[in-house]
């Protein structure tokens, strides 16, 4: 399975990871090599085998509806790169 530069750029867009030209070249080669190692799974017959998402025997865990104190606002915002009043500050999402 060969991953082209174009595919690398498409995945990078989905993941919102900026890449230099050099990184695109390197990832195209490295991802292709890694995917080659996944080919082995094609040999496995998984007809009628259910997928396992996690290994513990718990289903639909819900917490009790109990009111508990939240973190103080100052603490929540203490690592914010940009803030204004009691809010995280972000750039406009919709451009004009």
């Amino acid at each position: 399975m060969k991953i082209s530069r174009k595919e690398v750029l498409h995945i990078a867009l989905l993941a919102r990871v900026g890449l230099t030209d050099e990184e695109v070249d390197r990832l195209s080669e490295q991802l292709s090599n890694i995917l080659e190692n996944f080919e082995v799974l094609k040999q496995v017959d998984t007809t009628n085998v259910p997928p396992t998402a996690q290994s513990i025997d718990l289903r639909n865990v819900v917490s009790d509806d109990v009111i508990a104190p939240s973190l103080p606002l100052d603490d929540v915002l203490s690592n914010a790169p940009q803030k204004e009043a009691d809010f995280f500050k972000v750039r406009a999402v919709l451009e004009e």
């Binding site: 799974l41 496995v44 998984t46 085998v49 259910p50 997928p51 396992t52």
Partner: peptide, 10 residues
Amino acid sequence: KAQKVRTLIR
């Protein structure tokens, strides 16, 4: 596919 093989490993 990986999740199914995971079942077999378990």
